[in-house]
Design a binder for these strands. Structure first.
Lengths: 230, 230
DNA sequence: ACAAAAGTGTTCGCGCTACACCCATGC
DNA sequence: GCATGGGTGTAGCGCGAACACTTTTGT
């Protein structure tokens, strides 16, 4: 209980930044390639060390803004603490992992060593970062169906078809645009903008554009069972 | 990015240990009363500092076993990192909060300064521990309906009435024992033991005893919508 | 006119809630 | 017998999946 012989550790924050990229229509993760040892050449999650005057959440937001020019992270949440004693060499280091979501069609200026990679074919990863990425993937999948977290992956305005492609990329299976509309509408999450998108080159009816009414994280379907009466 | 001028911090683990106590039929939390400054007299969550050779999860389990003789914690999960710079005086300290669940009818030997308190009328709490407790409460409520987390609150064998009282205590509203049985049975979580409980003093049909078939955490109802086909 | 793509409506079924009814035991 | 409590059955319905049908555009 005395603080004298307490071991001190380095606290770092690491972000699994995900986006559904318009070109590939896949979930991709933001990684940077290490230029020096240890683990030189391997790919790492963006992040860094906690400063004295900030919380881990503040630190994570700051580091994303500073290092990879990501100011428009639409959602940022903790996914867990990674603390295996041998997870990195040198000073004992404990990491708080985060899930960060960037809307499609955002294309931030990235440093030269930084880029997007498909989440289901990760390059050789540094330290325990692959494990953290997998945890984030799992969290995102789980929350997509009972929260409004999809808003953080969609652009500000979108057609229902485009939105269903985003859901499909995350979940890995077909998502009916029809049902998607009804479910999100019933939950009060979807509003038509009144405008329409331009039709494709082969013609076709122009799609209506929609917007999410709520742009902050919210649990929209909290109870699988044991709902409170009324 | 050099490690030379990196600030080092103390990493601690803190547990919100909850149980539905048979006497009060309420959710109660395990707290100990601080005997010295800072925050002398206030109540604190059990926990302590991370050791060099352990993960935070291992540390939490160890500290609960050592300090409050809690070896039978049926469920232990991280609920988040609490890292406000001024959350405690002295060395910068970052806490990983845990939710721990103890089955009803367990009555571990506790130190003299340690005891159970009703969760919805917390005594004066030290540091940011009240906030951590609230987070844990919220997590438990949320997960009760779509996971099997209830197993960690129930004794090894129980009547359906007793189980429904446990669910009621956590959720704060009525839970129909009839429907509870059907739902848990359908999810394959419930098995009758074949034995029966003794009837109450006023008579009445003796209740059948049940057991949970699965005694590890599992998500039983992962999709509110967008289920994968087949 | 025809193809292409979007939007609407309908059917179906599952799973949860509510509640009535039947069963077993003590007095 | 009656009171007490446990267990079973059933009706209703909200929600989501699947899919056919209609509407609007370009060629």
């Amino acid at each position: 209980m005395t603080e004298s012989n307490t071991t001190l550790v380095r606290v770092e924050v690491l972000a699994v930044v995900l986006a559904v990229r318009p070109i590939t229509r896949q979930v991709e993760i933001l990684l940077w390639q290490r230029g020096r040892d240890p683990e030189s050449g391997r790919w790492a999650l963006p992040g860094g060390t906690l400063l004295p005057a900030e919380t881990v959440d503040e630190s994570m937001a700051r580091q994303l803004a500073q290092k990879v020019d990501l100011t428009r992270v639409a959602h940022l949440e903790q996914i867990g603490v990674f603390s295996a004693p041998d997870r990195s060499p040198g000073v004992r280091s404990v990491a708080t992992g985060f899930l960060g979501l960037v809307p499609a069609h955002e294309d931030p200026d990235l440093p030269a060593d930084t880029g997007w990679h498909p989440l289901d074919r990760l390059p050789p990863m540094a330290f325990d970062h692959a494990e953290i990425a997998q945890r984030a993937r799992h969290r995102l999948r789980g929350k997509l169906s009972y929260t409004n977290i999809g808003f953080a992956l969609a652009p500000r305005e979108f057609t229902l078809n485009a939105l269903s492609r985003i859901y499909r990329a995350v979940l890995g299976h077909e998502v009916d645009a029809t049902n998607l509309q009804r479910i999100l509408t019933r939950r009060g999450m979807l509003a038509p903008t009144g405008t329409r998108a331009a039709p494709g080159p082969a013609g076709g009816r122009p799609a209506a554009l929609y917007r999410f009414t709520v742009t902050e994280y919210r649990v929209t379907d909290p109870f699988a069972a044991f709902r409170p009466p009324e």
